[in-house]
């Protein structure tokens, strides 16, 4: 993964309202390349909503988000810096693992050889299942397909919503090294997780939404 230039994502007094209930307000944070932001908070405190706002899928009721000091709303290339994994992994159930990844990375705009894609599939431990329809995979395996897509897209800002759910223990440690590797190459990470991530404290920032 080639190192990317230094970027900054900062948010000032964000407020999010769902219908008539206020989820969270005056949220501030700033992360630079090589840093990760862990979003904590009880269920229903708006973690997913915050992540979707940061992806610019939704605009906050109040507040500003800037990417390299440019407002992300209407920013023409901000969304092209992001790799996003939501609750649903973005995996087509009627395609095989290999097809899913081949189409996903081509649609996103990267053009990797099939051999590289197979390499990544082996890395996430799905090589034996590469020609099986995603429909037949377990939830954990579907998550791994999404994590494989993440590494193929080679984007600077990873926004992951509970990436470790349904993943078995030994794979989590391996994935943590992928995250660490990503941060070391000027990557950025925003993540919500119930399980504690073993990442170096220096590169970690935390915010809690349910305060």
């Amino acid at each position: 993964m080639r190192t990317q230039e230094v970027s900054v994502l900062s948010a000032h007094d964000l407020k999010c309202v769902k219908g008539s209930t206020e989820l969270f307000s005056n949220i501030h944070f700033e992360i630079r390349s090589g840093e990760a932001l862990v979003v904590e908070g009880s269920n229903g405190s708006g973690k997913t909503s915050l992540l979707r706002i940061l992806c610019n899928y939704n605009s906050p009721a109040e507040g500003q988000i800037t990417w390299n000091d440019e407002k992300i709303d209407g920013h023409e290339s901000y969304q092209q810096q992001i790799s996003y994994i939501g609750h649903a992994s973005g995996v087509k159930l009627d395609l095989t693992v290999l097809e899913n990844l081949v189409f996903a990375q081509r649609l996103v705009g990267t053009d990797r050889q099939e051999s590289e894609i197979k390499e990544i599939i082996r890395a996430v431990g799905l090589f034996k299942q590469r020609n099986i329809l995603a429909r037949k995979l377990s939830a954990g395996q579907k998550r791994r397909v999404a994590l494989a897509r993440l590494q193929l897209e080679e984007r600077q800002l990873w926004i992951l919503d509970e990436p470790l759910t349904a993943l078995d223990k030994d794979f989590v440690t391996e994935f943590e090294s992928v995250l660490k590797n990503h941060l070391d190459q000027n990557g950025m990470l925003i993540v919500t997780t119930h399980r504690e991530l073993l990442l170096p404290e220096a590169q970690l920032k935390r915010i809690n939404l349910s305060r």
Partner: peptide, 17 residues
């Protein structure tokens, strides 16, 4: 319908294209 269920609608908007 399927794109909304499996979350691939979001990916449409992150593409270079």
């Amino acid at each position: 319908r399927q794109d909304f269920d499996d979350g691939s609608v979001e990916q449409l908007f992150l593409s270079q294209h």
